[in-house]
Design a protein around this nucleic acid. Structure first.
Lengths: 205, 205
DNA sequence: CCTACCGATCGGTAGG
DNA sequence: CCTACCGATCGGTAGG
């Protein structure tokens, strides 16, 4: 059997993906509980009952999306390639890669918020268990290799890196369609990265 | 007629407040659409129909909460009092005051996420219109009065300040109940403020 | 004419 | 993958 590619997905796989993609779109627009199984079915062009051949429940669709579509699977290899001469260069590149990826899949930030709002972060800890062991070593390596860091705890270095990206993405959502939007420079994201970097780096003095 | 105080609320005011407080608690725990009007009524100890003497719809309850209970009403006077000799001291004090207030009303951060998830930030722009004219002058004053700032756009200074607080609050929710929790120092919030401050301040060099 | 609320039920929809 | 349904519950409203 050849490895599955897009060309030779089974009919079942195609339907399953159609359900996931429909659900992503609708959850993103309406939220989880405001989205009905009938809407998902209609959007995926099958009958309501047909969904239950692929997923046992509405929550199972959400879990599949959270796990299958997580951007870190595409982001991670990119980050590892994003080398740089200095810590500053590396983190700067990494931040740009992550935000570019998140912007190309803008649904995910909202799915993450749904996860917090509707499930109290229930599936989040599973995700962290998967990601942390891969991400922490990167920040441990940074801490060990460089001496000009003001923050030397890899966990909080990781957390604040994620936090910096989250704060950009969320304030971006909040201020869009607001009067503040006009006051923002277009390179706001660079400023966020800049604030983060020159906060964690010791002054060259 | 004396100004209304807690002692002489009318029966109607008391009921209205009971409905708002019940809704806050349930929205926070379950999300907006997962919370039924019946649950809100039960928690407020009145019949379902009774709610509609005070609110025309479920969404009107949410709007009232967002507008009435916004922590900025309590945070703002405190920030204005949080003077400091330097910009660093002032922002440090301000950040602590805001986070302390948000932690004492931990519901609000979640209501804000619901607002984004369920209403696509619909009510948020109203709120920004109310807050921005009061908050921006503070950051404008900071920009004018100090010369050791790396960020001189008041709007993005404001945005990144809010973003710093949001990123702390949200990553706090995400990592609670996770293995990462143990790796976090207890003063993680101070580190966040520290990263923010030494990011926006020029090196004394 | 007001307020605060009741028991019962409306038309539709939820997940399964 | 569909049609046809279920027990229950949804947000909202009726008259009194």
């Amino acid at each position: 059997m050849p490895a599955k590619k897009k060309e030779n997905l089974t009919k079942g796989d195609t339907t399953r993906l159609a359900i996931e993609d429909s659900a992503i779109e609708l959850f993103m627009e309406q939220g989880y509980h405001a989205t009905s199984m009938r809407q998902i079915a209609e959007h995926a062009e099958l009958a309501l009952g047909g969904i239950y051949n692929h997923f046992a429940s509405k929550e199972e669709i959400f879990e599949a999306i959270i796990l299958d579509k997580h951007p870190y699977k595409r982001v991670f290899p990119a980050i590892l390639e994003a080398e740089g001469e200095t810590v500053e260069e590396f983190l700067n590149n990494a931040a740009h890669v992550v935000i570019k990826e998140l912007k190309s899949q803008p649904y995910y930030i909202k799915l993450m918020l749904i996860e917090i709002v509707e499930f109290n972060g229930k599936h989040g800890s599973t995700l962290i268990k998967e990601i942390a062991p891969k991400a922490l070593p990167i920040f441990e390596r940074i801490v060990k290799s460089r001496k000009n860091l003001r923050i030397t705890n890899p966990a909080i270095l990781f957390r604040s890196f994620i936090g910096m990206i989250l704060s950009y993405m969320i304030t971006d959502i909040i201020i869009s369609n607001s009067i503040l939007q006009k006051l923002m420079p277009k390179n706001a994201m660079d400023t966020y990265v800049d604030i983060y970097l020159h906060g964690i780096l010791k002054a060259e003095a």
